[in-house]
Write a protein that binds this DNA or RNA. Structure first.
Lengths: 335, 335
DNA sequence: CTGTTAGCGCATTCAA
DNA sequence: TTGAATGCGCTAACAG
């Protein structure tokens, strides 16, 4: 079918060991034979069979990226960051998306195996002990992005502080009725950042002496359509909030659409603040918390590649900064 | 390191052939031994080593998805479609992004090889003869999405007709000065759809007896920032267009931002029409040509999986419909 | 029905 | 400096 190393060896009139040597520079080869081999390789358009190489080397030269909520723009932005560095490397990316618990279980059971991938990059999924055991006993290098486990290196941001500051910013503008539109706290896939953001919200409210009213806490999935629904409910309430902190930009935009439909002017009648700073946020002039999504992808793979290539690499955790980007959806109330 | 089939065989007190048999149901096994084997597999938490399996089977159970312009929302939407079906299958996805000619060359030279992947799904890249030769002599099943080659099955839309209709719609509204904001015609990665859309624009203009003015044809990369720049130039011209057809939604939104900054009201002073119908288009109330991006991904993999699984599968081409979605960025001029 | 063996394509060790 | 032999883990053909 395809040319093998034997074909090249025959063509060049040498042994396969010699061909392998020039392919990998694994041992000295005389200039003359090297040239013969290279000529044969070129003539046959030979590229070593990946499967054979994997088996022999015990390496796969590929890493798995595991992504929940693949519909989320934020995840895509991270993946872009990953690809931007992987393109320059010799690794392949195996992409796994996870939308529900069975899918997560299947991935965590089958993917972290020797001979499958050389490393794991996991987005936004907290590990259960069973998953961790699998990873650890297989000694599969792993880096978490936007999630946490005491035993694993990760790239993270201080969600609590970032959210707290955003809420305090709203309070400082003079808002008292600040609602929280977020994700369900008990994420079926096990994420903690939603809880952290809610925590930050509560802290911010408390710091400013504001009451966290139960009817001001609403959850939905982080898609725009859901933000629209939740926003509708919230804005039709008799005690309507004057400001809303949304868990992510997509939710925030859904809220804005709801407000638009109810003819509630943003920002004069309603301030909205998002989270992520996706590209759409710029277009919509949305005030938001910028987390450097692309950068988390970049740092995540880089950390992972280092742990793979350097045995006993001391992979610690890396915290990235956030920044409140004030645009045009937040002003003082009744202005 | 990891448990192998031999460990399982020893644990169960059988031969490796028997273990392989129960793993693959490749030959009848007595109920008693089957249970012994299953118990051993369970006890050792055994999953067959992927590299060994690949080599032995001559299959990789993975397919490559090759994507240029990974920054484009449209490509992401297609990829989502792909992942939605792949999750239900037993195939892995190897993701390759391509941002320039050297990267394309490298991917096409190294990826379409037996032992590397079982199939190729290629987005928006026209093949050169050299690339095609590689694919054909390796007999790697391949499906193109949004690109064309007479020898390869593809998923496509009628770009020319769709653009023509969009332009005719603008003309019917009464616009005469209709500009085209598009991609460079000579795409360095070899795409034809940009040329097709420009062609459709010209046809539409001609059908309506309108003149294609050179200063009304502007190109940039399909990112919003570029749309902004191009839009700025176009809108500062003395002979300012009253309507703009943009090659893709992202460019259209950039144009709208430029208009916003120049205090040119959309749509009363300027109609804008995009292409793709990305999610952002809905938020921005952008009139646009909807092509079913997610669906192209779905159909693309499905077609590919069929060609892989069914020898001599007659994979033809599939044309998907487009639809003009009229929202709020297009009205009659001077209204 | 089941154990043993050959071979997938490669890197690498052992001999020469 | 190089060729030949061994083994990576598995499937499948072969032999019992």
């Amino acid at each position: 079918m395809s040319n093998t190393i034997h074909d090249v060896a025959r063509q060049a009139g040498v042994g396969i060991g010699t061909v392998s040597s020039v392919l990998n520079n694994s041992r000295p080869v005389s200039q003359a034979t090297r040239e013969k081999v290279l000529a044969a390789i070129d003539k046959l358009d030979f590229i070593p069979n990946s499967s054979g190489r994997r088996l022999s080397m015990g390496r796969t030269d590929s890493i798995a990226v595991i992504i929940p909520y693949f519909t989320s723009v934020a995840q895509i932005e991270r993946l872009r960051g990953v690809m931007s560095v992987i393109v320059e490397s010799d690794y392949d990316i195996n992409l796994f998306t996870v939308e529900n618990a069975p899918q997560r279980d299947k991935v965590f059971q089958t993917v972290p195996r020797r001979g499958r991938v050389d490393g794991l990059l996991i987005f936004s999924l907290n590990m259960r002990d069973k998953d961790l055991k699998q990873i650890q006993q297989g000694k599969i290098p792993t880096v978490l992005v936007e999630s946490f486990h005491p035993e694993l290196p990760n790239i993270y941001i201080d969600d609590i502080a970032a959210t707290r500051k955003a809420v305090e910013y709203l309070a400082d503008l003079g808002h008292q009725n600040i609602a929280y539109v977020g994700d369900v706290l008990e994420d079926p896939l096990g994420s903690s950042f939603n809880q952290n953001r809610y925590l930050g919200y509560c802290q911010g409210m408390e710091n400013k002496g504001l009451h966290v009213h139960p009817s001001f806490y609403r959850v939905g999935w982080h898609r725009r359509a859901k933000g629209y629904q939740v926003g509708m409910k919230l804005l039709k309430q008799t005690n309507r909030p004057t400001a809303i902190f949304a868990f992510c930009d997509e939710l925030a935009l859904g809220v804005i659409e709801a407000a638009r439909e109810l003819e509630i002017n943003v920002p004069s009648d309603l301030s909205v603040i998002g989270y992520d700073d996706i590209e759409l946020a710029h277009f919509a002039q949305l005030t938001t918390v910028r987390q450097h999504l692309f950068e988390t992808g970049v740092q995540g793979v880089e950390l992972l590649l280092n742990t793979i290539d350097t045995p006993n690499y001391n992979a610690g955790s890396i915290q990235l900064e956030t920044k409140l980007i004030v645009r045009q959806t937040t002003v003082s109330p009744n202005q």
